[in-house]
Nucleic acid binder design. Structure first.
Lengths: 319, 319
DNA sequence: CGTGGATATGCAAATATTTGCAAGTATTGT
DNA sequence: ACAATACTTGCAAATATTTGCATATCCACG
């Protein structure tokens, strides 16, 4: 730790002033003082070190720059976007969709393949996705179908709304997400229908996921895919989060569970190979599930509302 | 003037935060957001423009960075150094000498030729000049001698103290500064003594000057070189400043005067060809003279105490 | 709808900055 | 005083940043 002689300090300040405030190049400063460019560079580095020059970011109040950065660092994310939360969840979803649109605009390339999961969050967001200009994008579900009738949260429907928003080509996955037993699943994944989608999954550059807790407010329960008893079983087994039908414990590890063997969808761990794994979540209720998903380490990018974000950062202690 | 959409602002803030506060490279930021490096560079430029990022210099209180910069810009100087003023002029001279030493340390190269003028200020400073490591430096007076006995302000003596301080070789100028009439001067400048020094003057890379007003407190009067009547004559002709025996008016133009034709020294306008022209001045009394010298446009670098500096910047209105 | 100007973007060339290295210079302990 | 060690510096190579240019997009107006 080198301390500074008195004169040194004002000399560094002068160089920093010329560089940062006056916009002079380091070469010009070097000429002016008759020292080398390298010395100027090192002087500026030292001025930063010694806090002789400080930077101030004038973010709008009402933006969440600090918190975003905090979460990015804490969870090793490439990017965290926090949007303002509204009373009405639907409005918040629209705001999240705007953020996701902007993010996809940046991330998508010609020919990118986007995998879309399932759930009420993604359904709502798909409906509000804005147009993105990127040619040749393909959208594919990463979870099988469920239900016999096309409801709003039918995975192919959600993928369609994403494809529409992105002006992309949609690929269908016409196999059920959950079959009766492992044997059936094992047989099914041999079929060319699965093989085709699987090949597409192998080329995914973006995956878009949501998370859910395992209370009875989860879509998986409300749409009748899991029974109350099955949910209880999952919670008993330590389940804290469901994402694309994978069940994670609070540490972010996938846990074995009654549905694992009967599932047709992109395996959770396969997300690791995907360049951009985006999770979207709305509301503080999602925070514990989101935290579990973050702990898994496979999530790159997060788009959440402020309530979810602050709850993730500073969890209320359960009473 | 491009205004910013709401989202734009926080986006720029985020990039600026990553770049300035987190120290991420622009390339890393570009990868993170899926945009090009050029776009990041432009975003940072815009963030500066829009004052989304601001720089703060934590100069010591008691230093004069702002004022230095102000004077540098106002007078188009390469460098202005302001030192703390002390009650005792001699102490202030010592402080000025320290600053000059540091400046010369940076400016001098192997073989540099330094021209030194004359006066009480330079005499005092020469005595306090610190050691400078630069080999092969040569020091030469830029004004002829005066007086018959070696006093402290004898030009060759001043040059000698500079040479000592700089561990430099000293060259003498053994011709009188002021002769009786033009004819004598014209004859003298044909002599090889003058020619030798003149050749050296042509290679000067640094000139060190002081300034003086034309009141009866000037060394030129006190050491008997000019009479009170001659001083009055110079004042009447609009003279505001003497520097190396050149007389300048308040606009910085050299003015014809009774001594011009009888002078043996480096002509004031020849300073224009010298890379570094340094003026040293102490005390608010020197301010008007310094301002005239600055107006001449030949001065590159100024070393003054705070009193002189503030008086130059904000002259008291004469009552 | 189509057109023209203003704006934004990426590529790649031009600049600018940083850094490894070697040589020189203070500092320290003997 | 002397050697060993820690700093500092400038050079030049390696990186990083900026910018000219061509292209693509957006928007206002006919």
């Amino acid at each position: 730790m080198s301390s500074l002689e008195p004169g040194q300090r004002s000399h560094l300040a002068k160089i920093a002033r010329l560089y940062f405030l006056e916009g002079e190049s380091q070469a010009a400063i070097a000429r002016r003082f008759g020292i080398s460019i390298a010395t100027v560079s090192r002087a500026i580095a030292k001025a930063k070190d010694e806090k002789i020059v400080e930077f101030r970011i004038n973010d709008d109040a009402g933006h969440f720059g600090e918190l975003e950065l905090h979460l990015e660092r804490e969870w090793n994310l490439a990017e965290c976007m926090i949007v303002r939360g509204f009373e009405d969840s639907q409005t918040t979803f629209a705001a999240l969709a705007v953020a996701l649109t902007e993010m996809l605009q940046r991330l998508l390339r010609d020919g990118s393949v986007v995998g879309v999961s399932w759930g009420e969050t993604l359904k709502a967001i798909g409906e509000h996705l804005g147009p993105v200009r990127a040619p040749g994008v393909r959208v594919v579900p990463i979870i099988g179908t469920m239900g016999d009738i096309e409801t709003g949260i039918y995975p192919n429907s959600i993928a369609r709304s994403f494809a529409d928003g992105l002006s992309a080509r949609q690929y269908l996955l016409n196999l059920p997400a959950l079959v009766d037993n492992r044997a059936i699943r094992d047989a099914m994944v041999e079929d060319s229908h699965y093989r085709t989608v699987q090949a597409l999954w192998a080329t995914l550059s973006v995956a878009i996921l949501s998370v859910s807790g395992l209370s009875e407010s989860t879509s998986m329960y409300r749409s009748g895919i899991l029974s109350a008893a099955e949910l209880q079983e999952l919670r008993d087994a330590g389940g804290a989060c469901a994402s694309n039908f994978a069940i994670l414990d609070a540490r972010g590890n996938t846990i074995e569970n009654p549905i694992t063997d009967r599932l047709v969808g992109l395996p959770f761990r396969d997300l690791e190979r995907i360049e951009h794994v985006i999770v979207v979540a709305e509301g503080s209720a999602k925070a514990p599930a989101l935290r579990a998903a973050l702990k898994s380490g496979v999530v790159d990018r997060v788009i959440v509302d402020e309530r979810c974000a602050s709850e993730v950062e500073t969890p209320r202690v359960p009473v």
